[in-house]
Amino acid sequence: MTEYKLVVVGAGGVGKSALTIQLIQNHFVDEYDPTIEDSYRKQVVIDGETCLLDILDTAGQEEYSAMRDQYMRTGEGFLCVFAINNTKSFEDIHHYREQIKRVKDSEDVPMVLVGNKCDLPSRTVDTKQAQDLARSYGIPFIETSAKTRQGVDDAFYTLVREIRKHKEKMSKDGKKKKKKSKTKCVIM
C-alpha cells in the first residue's frame, strides 16, 4: 500500500485542523484551538488504489514558523489553505509557496490551493482571484467548507493525484537520464 505524506499549511484560523478532522473523523470542530502540530493517518481508496494518507496539520501562528522547514522537508505534497473571508490569509499563500519551493529546492512541488469556509456569506476573496492565482502557479484550486464537508475529500484526493503525477514524471525523467548515460565512448 502506497503511503502519501501530505502537509496542510496556511495562516492561523483558516480551518486547516477543521478540514483535516472532517476528512479523518467526519465531524466539524467549530471551536478554535490553535494547533502546534498534529499528525493523522487514514486509509482510503483513490482511483481504485488503496493508500495510506499521513497528514500533518501544522501551526499557522507566526511564533511556530521555525518548525516549518522541518515538516516541509518531509512532506510530499501540500494543501495551501486560505479562508475566503480573510484576504490576508490569501496573500500569505505566496509566502508559504515560496518557502516550500526553497526548502524542497524545487520549482515543481505537488500543491493544491484550497479556499476554505465557502459556506460563509462574508467572502472577501473572489473565486476568480483564487483561480487566477492557482493557474499562475500551475496547481489545482478547490473551494471547501469544513463545516458542510463540501470539497473536503476532493481537496485531499486531488493532492494525492498531483503527487502521483509528480512521481510518474520524475521516474520518466530518471529513465531518460539513465538511457543517456548508457551511451559509451570508444577510443581507438
Results as ranks from 00 to 15, higher is better:
Y4W: 07
Y64I: 06
T20G: 10
V14W: 07
Q61K: 03
E31V: 08
A18N: 15
L52I: 11
Q22D: 15
T20K: 01
G48N: 07
I24R: 06
G15M: 00
D30E: 09
T35F: 15
V9H: 04
V44A: 11
P34N: 12
D57Q: 00
T50H: 10
L6W: 12
S17A: 01
I36R: 00
L19Q: 13
A59I: 10
Y32L: 07
V8T: 01
I36Q: 02
K16W: 01
V29P: 06
L52A: 09
L53V: 14
V8S: 02
I55D: 01
C51H: 12
V14C: 12
D54C: 02
Q43F: 06
G15L: 00
T50A: 12
V29W: 07
L53S: 07
Y32T: 14
N26M: 07
A18Y: 00
V45D: 12
G48E: 11
Y40E: 01
V7C: 07
L56T: 13
F28Q: 03
T2P: 08
Y4Q: 09
K5H: 03
T20P: 07
S39C: 13
D38A: 02
K5V: 03
H27D: 11
Q22R: 14
L19R: 00
I55K: 01
I21Y: 15
A18F: 00
D57S: 00
A59K: 03
L6A: 02
Y32D: 03
S39K: 02
A11S: 08
I24C: 10
I24L: 13
V29C: 12
A18V: 04
L6I: 13
G48W: 03
L23C: 14
Y32I: 08
D47W: 02
I46G: 09
G13W: 04
I24N: 09
E37T: 04
L56C: 13
T35W: 15
I55L: 07
F28G: 02
R41I: 02
E37A: 06
D47I: 01
C51L: 08
E37C: 10
D54P: 01
G12F: 03
V14F: 07
E3N: 08
A18T: 14
S39M: 05
Q22S: 14
K5P: 12
G60A: 14
G12L: 02
V14S: 13
E63I: 02
I24K: 11
G13Q: 10
D38E: 07
V14D: 14
A11V: 12
A18G: 12
Q43P: 10
D38R: 01
E31I: 07
S39A: 14
E37N: 04
K16R: 15
D54K: 04
D57G: 01
E3S: 10
Y64R: 10
V29L: 11
I21C: 13
F28S: 04
V8N: 01
K16A: 15
L56N: 08
L52H: 09
A18E: 01
I36K: 02
E49H: 09
D57M: 01
Q61S: 05
L19A: 13
I36N: 01
E37P: 00
C51S: 09
A59S: 09
H27W: 14
D57V: 04
T20C: 06
V9F: 13
Q43N: 11
G15K: 00
G13C: 07
Q61L: 05
D54R: 03
P34T: 14
L6F: 10
K5C: 02
K5E: 04
G15F: 01
Y4P: 09
G60M: 15
E3D: 13
S17R: 00
D47L: 02
T20E: 03
L23W: 10
I21E: 03
V14E: 12
A11K: 05
N26K: 12
H27T: 11
V9M: 14
L52V: 12
E3A: 12
Q61E: 11
Q43C: 08
I36Y: 02
I55Y: 14
